[in-house]
Simulated assay, not measured.
Amino acid sequence: MNTLILKTTSRFLFTLLLLLSVFLLLRGHNEPGGGFIGALVAVGAYALFALAHGLSAARKLLPLPPLRLVGWGLLVALLSALPALLLGQPLMTGQWFSLLGVKMGTPVIFDIGVYLTVFGALLSAIFGLEEAAHHPSEGA
């Protein structure tokens, strides 16, 4: 799409949606929200930006390729389960600690892993569908 209104508002909405995404991620273990819904909102932000500015512009905003984010997300989620095992407790038992004066727990770390995994997987699928729409394969 090549409209001035969409291009102008998508930059503002992109930032706003990413902030909402992080808010949903961080409050998720106490109230509704979490890594899954936070990632869905972030994917919506990138999809809107790609629709307004093109796929290559949206890809440039990513720190890593989407599938690499999936791998990092799975690793973070796995690492969140290890402290309980190291302490002789059942797998994924919540552990809380203080990091730089901020109280954190393994459930938040697990949510961050879910966030990265869902974000990378869905964004990879959306980018793939967008590429297929612009470059349909011959003979199909």
Rank of each mutant, 00 (worst) to 15 (best):
L64R: 11
L40Y: 03
A77L: 14
F97M: 10
P65T: 08
V76T: 15
A42V: 07
L67K: 13
A81F: 13
L40Q: 05
P65Y: 08
L86V: 14
P65Q: 06
L69T: 10
L75K: 06
L86G: 12
F49I: 02
M92G: 02
A84M: 10
A77T: 07
Q95E: 10
F97L: 14
P66H: 07
L51Y: 13
L78F: 15
A52I: 03
R68Y: 12
L62W: 02
Y46A: 08
L51P: 00
L62N: 08
K60R: 14
L82D: 09
I37H: 03
S80E: 04
V43K: 04
A84F: 09
F97C: 03
L55P: 02
L62E: 06
L67I: 12
A58I: 02
V70Q: 04
L40P: 03
L82V: 15
F49S: 00
A50V: 03
A42S: 13
G54M: 07
G38H: 09
L85Q: 11
A42F: 04
G94I: 07
A47I: 05
L91K: 01
V43Y: 05
P63R: 09
L55N: 10
V70C: 10
G73E: 04
G54L: 06
L75C: 10
P83W: 08
A47D: 06
A81N: 07
L91N: 02
F36R: 11
L62M: 15
P83M: 11
L55M: 10
A50I: 00
L40R: 00
H53G: 01
M92P: 01
G88W: 06
G73P: 05
P65D: 08
G71F: 14
A81W: 12
W72R: 00
A81T: 12
L82Y: 08
L91P: 01
L91M: 12
V43H: 04
S56F: 03
L85M: 13
W96G: 11
P90H: 06
L48S: 03
W72G: 06
G54K: 03
I37E: 13
G54R: 07
L55H: 09
L75W: 04
V70E: 03
H53V: 00
G94D: 15
L79P: 05
H53K: 03
G88V: 06
S80V: 06
K60A: 15
A39W: 07
L87G: 02
L55I: 14
F49E: 01
F36I: 12
W72D: 00
G54T: 07
L55W: 08
L75V: 13
L79A: 15
G44E: 06
G73W: 01
L61H: 06
H53A: 01
F36Q: 12
S56C: 00
P83V: 11
G94S: 15
A52H: 02
G94H: 12
L64S: 06
L78D: 06
V76F: 13
L87I: 01
L74G: 15
A39P: 09
K60G: 01
L86F: 15
V76I: 15
P83R: 05
S80R: 05
W96T: 13
L64F: 15
P63N: 02
L48F: 01
L48Y: 00
A45P: 10
G94R: 14
L85K: 11
F36G: 10
H53P: 00
P90L: 02
A52Q: 05
F49H: 09
Q89G: 08
F97K: 04
